[in-house]
Design a protein around this nucleic acid. Structure first.
Length: 491
DNA sequence: GTAGGGTTAG
């Protein structure tokens, strides 16, 4: 059947849908879908593809699949969008298999491969990523081209397989600046700063570094404590490499100095910036003040941050924790009350783990998993073993909230410990340990930054259970092995 | 203005 010719309004509609998709707005996209139906475009390939893309971008993969079902003649683009959505958002292995069997039978091109691999990177789906890699090699041969090669490097790095990423990169016959950037960023995320610095030396022989390269370099130095090296790169950015420093480079450098405890220099840099500092730059400085217990500086930065972003929860919680650590319980409590009164809620922490291709998600205190009883039994056992090996729950931040006497405090302490033990990372770890073969490695994903207590608990667990445990948090990777972490506790 | 694609801090 021939597709009906697209009137001018149809073109406008596709443009508008594209804009909505880029916004990823969960209200706007369904509204636009209603409009599409009213205008009589149901089942039209290009319009539906644009609608599906919108749904995928805002996480509504079920809706996207329903739209897909109505397309009269799905094209390779339709399949690409639906595959991307399923890989990015569908946790159920059987559902994924069904779509894959049909989709990859349809034929694919480099765009499909890149798109699906990028979805794997985001959801951390190594098994689909590997499958796509094999498929591509069978279909195209060993030289997959620079774009697919780069997608593979990024996928392996973000799925926790940094050595595989390196291997793929080293076998690429052609590499441009984007490929190099993907490799260096991956290494930076894994805390392999020394290697990033060494490889940068090779990179400049091959291609000209750009603004993204320096983001990777600065963050690598920051995460590995290579302060002098990073500071040098920041200075050479413009003068040696002709790259104009952007606000992100400043944010990274502030982080580099701040993490290392050089807060005065970090603040001088912020005040002397040619561009007004944004909340990212100030947020870095606040984080560093917290890490190094500089309460006065923290308060000052907080005042500026509240002006810029009054609804942000992370900053409030950071400062509140800082008060608690300094023993200023009243101030800590009143700051928490501000959040509560304004109805501002913290983004809930969530951890997930793939077991046999199936995604299992946990939130703190979760009891919704079908194997909850087993999980909590195993959790008690793990905590016991951890304690014997020297684990001390780190209740610094919560303990003192709202208690007025010694008894209250003891009770609060026990409660605080219980809250810590059921953090989402620990539940995911526990489920991973009980449902995989002894000795195999585990990869856990967390939507926020890993907490201090879970970091020390997982370090000890990696030793006791003789497992490599990789945790990808919001910012970077932690690879726990033999009782220590690849970040050397510098994060 | 015409559907899908690789690298970017905290």
């Amino acid at each position: 059947m021939r597709q009906r010719a697209l009137p001018v309004d149809g073109v406008a509609l596709i443009c508008a849908l594209g804009a909505c998709a880029r916004l990823g707005d969960t209200n706007l996209v369904p509204q636009m879908h209603v409009g599409v139906v009213k205008l009589g475009f149901s089942g039209h390939t290009k319009v539906c593809n644009a609608v599906m893309d919108g749904y995928v971008k805002c996480g509504l993969v079920g809706e996207a699949r329903r739209v897909f079902e109505e397309i009269e003649e799905p094209s390779v683009v339709s399949w690409t969008v639906v595959l991307e959505g399923v890989v990015k958002w569908e946790g159920n292995q059987k559902e994924k298999d069904t779509v894959f069997d049909c989709g990859f039978g349809f034929g694919l091109n480099n765009v499909t491969l890149c798109s699906v691999l990028s979805a794997c990177s985001q959801s951390g789906d190594l098994s689909v990523g590997r499958w796509v890699h094999c498929y591509a090699v069978k279909a195209v041969g060993w030289d997959l081209g620079v774009m697919v090669g780069t997608s593979l490097v990024d996928m392996y790095a973000k799925c926790g397989r940094i050595m595989t990423a390196l291997m793929v990169f080293r076998h690429m016959p052609r590499r441009n600046v984007v490929a190099w950037n993907a490799m260096l960023s991956g290494l930076a995320m894994h805390g392999m700063g020394k290697l990033v610095v060494d490889m940068f030396g090779c990179m400049v022989e091959e291609v000209k570094p750009d603004a993204v390269t320096f983001m990777a370099l600065l963050s690598a130095c920051s995460h590995s404590g290579l302060v002098e090296q990073g500071w040098q790169y920041f200075h050479d950015l413009q003068s040696v490499y002709g790259v104009r420093p952007e606000i992100e480079h400043y944010a990274c450098t502030v982080d580099l100095l701040g993490r290392a405890g050089r807060l005065e220099e970090a603040e001088v840099l912020v005040r002397k910036m040619p561009i007004p500092p944004n909340e990212v730059v100030l947020g870095s400085l606040l984080g560093a003040s917290y890490a190094h217990g500089k309460l006065r500086l923290g308060e000052k930065i907080m005042r500026e941050l509240i002006q810029m972003d009054p609804l942000n929860t992370e900053y409030h919680i950071l400062l509140s924790n800082m008060y608690a650590l300094c023993g200023k319980v009243d101030q800590a409590n009143s700051l928490r009350k501000v959040l509560k009164n304004r109805g501002i809620r913290k983004v809930p922490g969530m951890s997930s783990i793939y077991v046999d291709g199936q995604l299992h998600k946990f939130i703190a205190g979760d009891k919704s998993h079908p194997r909850t009883a087993d999980i909590y039994m195993k959790l008690d056992d793990i905590i016991c073993k951890l304690r014997l090996a020297g684990y001390v729950p780190n209740t610094n931040c919560q303990v003192l909230f709202g208690c007025s006497n010694g008894d209250d405090c003891m009770e609060a302490l026990e409660e605080a410990e219980q809250v810590l033990f059921t953090h989402s990372e620990k539940l995911a770890l526990c489920f991973g340990l009980m449902s995989t073969t002894p000795g195999s490695s585990l990869c856990i994903f967390k939507n926020l930054r890993i907490c201090q207590d879970c970091h020390s608990a997982i370090k000890i667990a990696s030793g006791i259970y003789k497992r490599e445990i990789v945790v990808r948090d919001r910012y970077r990777f932690h690879s726990f092995k033999h009782g220590s972490c690849s970040c050397s506790d510098y994060w």
